[in-house]
Simulated assay, not measured.
Amino acid sequence: MSIVARLEGKRLRPDLELAALVAEAAGDGAVVSFTGIARPRSSGGEAVDVLVLEHHPTLTQKSLEDIAGAAAERFDVTHVRVVHRFGEVPAGQPIVFAGAASPHRRSAFDAADYLMDRLKTEAIFWKRETGEAGSRWIEPTETDYSDRERWD
């Protein structure tokens, strides 16, 4: 069993994260991953140039570790990998990688879905979109919280 939960201040490379997860999962039957991309438009339709993710190094890291650890405990998985950007992320670039490996596909799918639902609502970040219309703070949506509640 391995659990990786990491903050990334430089450009996130989902291809490298997936390769690392696949290497760790040798002998498993399933690897499922999700890559989140910084959107080029706000929920209101305005152009977004940059997503700024502010964080507290200790608290944010702990929140990622707690979420990854909970997925590992909850699902029949052998490996969990969460890597989340912080700082300025240009629209179109990856901001999060979440993946899980398991002997069978269902557990890996469920673990990856669970990771993202919790990351969207519980990872400690302060998010701000910046674009032609200015800068505005963003919060998880009602849908994000509803998705999270599925796991209670």
Rank of each mutant, 00 (worst) to 15 (best):
residue 109 F to P: 11
residue 124 I to Y: 12
residue 116 M to W: 05
residue 105 R to P: 12
residue 108 A to V: 09
residue 118 R to N: 14
residue 113 D to V: 08
residue 109 F to N: 12
residue 100 A to E: 07
residue 107 S to P: 14
residue 120 K to P: 06
residue 111 A to N: 08
residue 124 I to K: 13
residue 113 D to Y: 10
residue 99 G to M: 04
residue 111 A to M: 13
residue 103 P to W: 11
residue 120 K to Y: 06
residue 98 A to P: 01
residue 107 S to E: 13
residue 110 D to R: 14
residue 114 Y to T: 03
residue 104 H to Q: 14
residue 107 S to N: 12
residue 106 R to V: 13
residue 101 A to D: 07
residue 98 A to F: 00
residue 110 D to G: 12
residue 100 A to C: 09
residue 123 A to C: 04
residue 107 S to I: 09
residue 114 Y to P: 02
residue 116 M to R: 10
residue 102 S to G: 08
residue 113 D to T: 12
residue 98 A to V: 02
residue 100 A to R: 11
residue 105 R to H: 13
residue 116 M to D: 06
residue 100 A to N: 10
residue 100 A to W: 06
residue 126 W to R: 10
residue 122 E to N: 12
residue 120 K to E: 06
residue 102 S to E: 09
residue 107 S to L: 08
residue 125 F to T: 02
residue 124 I to N: 14
residue 108 A to L: 09
residue 126 W to M: 09
residue 100 A to V: 06
residue 112 A to Q: 12
residue 105 R to A: 14
residue 115 L to Q: 02
residue 106 R to A: 14
residue 101 A to F: 05
residue 124 I to F: 15
residue 115 L to Y: 00
residue 119 L to H: 04
residue 99 G to Y: 04
residue 119 L to K: 05
residue 120 K to M: 04
residue 112 A to C: 11
residue 116 M to P: 06
residue 127 K to I: 02
residue 107 S to A: 12
residue 122 E to C: 09
residue 121 T to W: 00
residue 104 H to V: 08
residue 105 R to K: 14
residue 98 A to Q: 01
residue 124 I to Q: 13
residue 120 K to H: 07
residue 126 W to D: 09
residue 101 A to V: 06
residue 115 L to C: 01
residue 118 R to T: 15
residue 113 D to G: 10
residue 114 Y to F: 14
residue 113 D to A: 13
residue 126 W to N: 07
residue 113 D to Q: 07
residue 110 D to V: 13
residue 127 K to S: 06
residue 109 F to A: 12
residue 112 A to E: 15
residue 116 M to N: 08
residue 123 A to K: 04
residue 99 G to D: 03
residue 125 F to S: 05
residue 108 A to P: 08
residue 119 L to N: 05
residue 97 F to A: 01
residue 97 F to D: 00
residue 123 A to F: 01
residue 104 H to M: 07
residue 126 W to T: 10
residue 97 F to Q: 02
residue 127 K to V: 03
residue 113 D to F: 06
residue 100 A to Q: 07
residue 119 L to E: 05
residue 97 F to P: 00
residue 101 A to S: 05
residue 100 A to Y: 04
residue 123 A to E: 01
residue 108 A to Y: 06
residue 123 A to G: 03
residue 125 F to Q: 05
residue 118 R to S: 13
